[in-house]
Design a protein around this nucleic acid. Structure first.
Length: 415
RNA sequence: CGGGGACUAGUUCAUCGGUAGAACGCCCGCUUUGGGAGCGGGAAGCACAGGGUUCAAUUCCCUGGUCCCCGACCA
């Protein structure tokens, strides 16, 4: 992608009102644009990041037998009346005859009750990645608490609670793997289950800017959400608890039996007996992860994307482009990088490169923009670089002069 | 949903009871290119909306809206 064509350009200042780090940097760097409180447009750069995160999530969901599909945003109001959540789910957006989906039990249970009849139809693991709608009384902190947000929700259905619990363990392990892949260290946290279940487990990213309060046991280091804390004592070992701030990026629930009862989700087992289906639901906030990553990975100049989720791998900066030789060299490198390694294909054949081809701005502007946008590798081509490339990792200070081959090797190794 | 703050050019802000100004950005020209360059010129505004006070309101007062912050809430 040529920077001169990229929509939109960076901003020197964040709009007033953008106070959280993730909002300031994502808005200034041109990843998102706020439309209302808690509602954002994902601009080309931001959408690429969401797409990267989604792809990682998909890959792992598929590995544990998940099948991706897409359920509707508009839900029949009657279904929500049936479960009682038309009233109890207090952040539900209600329209005249429909509600906007904040979660999809009210869709997937009736759906499955039409198809699942036998133990042979189970287990079944279905997921989607979709915008969710929740009328938060106070949307805040950029992408961390929106009223419209991108989420992956997986639902699993089983012949027994034991089978469900075994799968639940699997999902828990995969979640930790996913968060690690996208650069986030998470803590598993015990929490309440709201309208879904009695208890649940959350995945929390510890950071001072987090908007959740969690408690970490000084003795056994288990972690508990504040809603479960009484007397500031650990539930596991009775040890003292330390209060910390964190961002909840995932939440998994063994679902209440009542959903299956309400929507008549039963099956016939081997012995011809009618049995109730056991289920779990597993949420992961894709857009919130994007915000959390920025909260964790940034410095005074801008964002520092982990390589796995960066919108591009290389930010190629062309300087002295009025010099035809330099310009030709930069263009050549730009093209070579993109076709050099077809194994890395995603949107383009080869490495994803953002090429700053502008000839009407100073070097300083280009460097400042590169730092702000936060692509992992900055590669400069200029009069100085001759037949080498000047490479600097966004996360490091030193620059190195390397050949094109060495650069490609660097990128492959760091993957 | 309680408490607080804000709303003026595309953006960040200044102004102030007497009909609006800078910087950045944008457009044109020249100059310039290793950390947000320089000079000159230009375009750019129903001052959130409605009501009041006043000879006169962007400015003071009231109501509403929107956004932000603190709390409550948060599957």
């Amino acid at each position: 992608m040529k920077y001169s064509l990229l929509f939109p350009k960076t901003l020197k200042k964040a709009p007033s009102g953008a106070e959280s780090i993730n909002q300031q940097l994502l808005v200034r760097a041109g990843f998102i644009h706020q439309e209302m409180a808690g509602v954002y447009t994902y601009l080309p750069l931001g959408w690429r990041v969401l797409d990267k995160i989604s792809d990682i999530v998909r890959e792992e969901m598929d590995k544990i037998g998940g099948q991706e599909m897409l359920m509707p945003v508009l839900h029949p109001k009657a279904n929500w009346a049936k479960t009682g959540r038309l009233k109890s789910f207090d952040v539900l957006y209600k329209l005249e005859d429909v509600v906007l989906g904040p979660s999809h039990e009210e869709i997937i249970y009736p759906l499955l009750s039409e198809y699942v009849k036998s133990y042979k139809d189970l287990p079944l693991c279905l997921y989607q990645i979709q915008m969710k709608f929740r009328n938060e009384p106070r949307a805040k902190a950029g992408l961390l608490r929106g009223r419209e947000f991108l989420m992956k929700d997986l639902y699993s259905f089983h012949v027994s609670d034991e089978d469900r619990d075994a799968y639940y363990e699997k999902v828990r392990a995969v979640y930790i793997k996913i968060f690690k892949k996208i650069g986030l260290d998470v803590l598993k946290t015990k929490a309440g289950g709201g309208t879904f279940s009695d208890l649940s487990e959350e995945f929390q990213v510890m950071t001072p800017s987090g908007e959740d309060t969690i408690f970490v046991c000084e003795k056994c280091s288990s972690v508990i959400n504040k809603e479960l804390v009484q007397d500031k004592k650990c539930l596991e070992c009775g040890g003292g608890l330390q209060e910390k701030r964190a961002i909840e990026v995932g939440n998994i629930f063994p679902l209440k039996r009542s959903y299956a009862e309400v929507f008549n989700l039963y099956f016939t087992d081997k012995n011809g007996e009618k049995k109730i289906v056991s289920a779990g639901c597993y949420g992961l906030g894709i857009s919130r992860c994007m915000g959390a990553i920025v909260e964790v990975f940034h410095d005074g100049q801008g964002i520092i994307w982990p390589e796995s989720v960066a919108p591009f791998q290389i930010h190629l900066v062309g300087l002295d482009l009025e010099d035809k030789k330099v310009m030709d060299e930069a263009e050549k490198i730009y093209k070579l990088l993109q076709v050099e390694d077809p194994e890395r294909s995603r949107r383009t054949e080869g490495i994803e490169v953002l090429y700053d081809d502008r000839s009407d701005v100073s070097a300083g502007v280009k460097f400042a923009d590169a730092d702000l946008i936060g692509i992992p590798f900055r590669v400069v081509v200029s009069k100085k670089t001759q037949d080498k490339l000047e490479v600097k990792k966004r996360s490091e200070k030193e620059t190195k002069f390397v050949s094109l081959k060495e650069l490609i090797k660097m990128i492959e190794l760091s993957d």
